[in-house]
Design a binder for these strands. Sequence first.
DNA 1: CGTCTAATCCCCT
DNA 2: AGGGGATTAGACG
Length: 99
Amino acid sequence: EGAGGDDAAKKRRLSDEQAQFLEMSFRKERKLETPRKVQLAAELGLDTKQVAVWFQNRRARYKSKLIEEEFSKLRAAHDAVVVHNCRLEAEVQCNSPTG
DNA sequence: CGTCTAATCCCCT
DNA sequence: AGGGGATTAGACG
């Protein structure tokens, strides 16, 4: 970079093949050791930087997804507990206080 | 120095 | 409005 060649820099979007390959690697391991990264880059005809960036974004977005899922589960659990507590309170209203 | 995360940018759809 | 690659700022070994 630096001197010329911005037409190549404008190009974005990886091919399906590249994406799938990266995905497989990601499934195997969410981290990349440097030699593996270099090998992948060579294998796919990408810059090692691009592979690194891909994994960084992948990890970040994967984490976001996990967090959202956790949030949904927590909210569902919370809802259930609240409903249950409401039912218990209703029962207390019906029960005799003394015995 | 290289790499990581988090946030953001920028472009495309 | 959202997805996806690239960039930036800040932390860490």
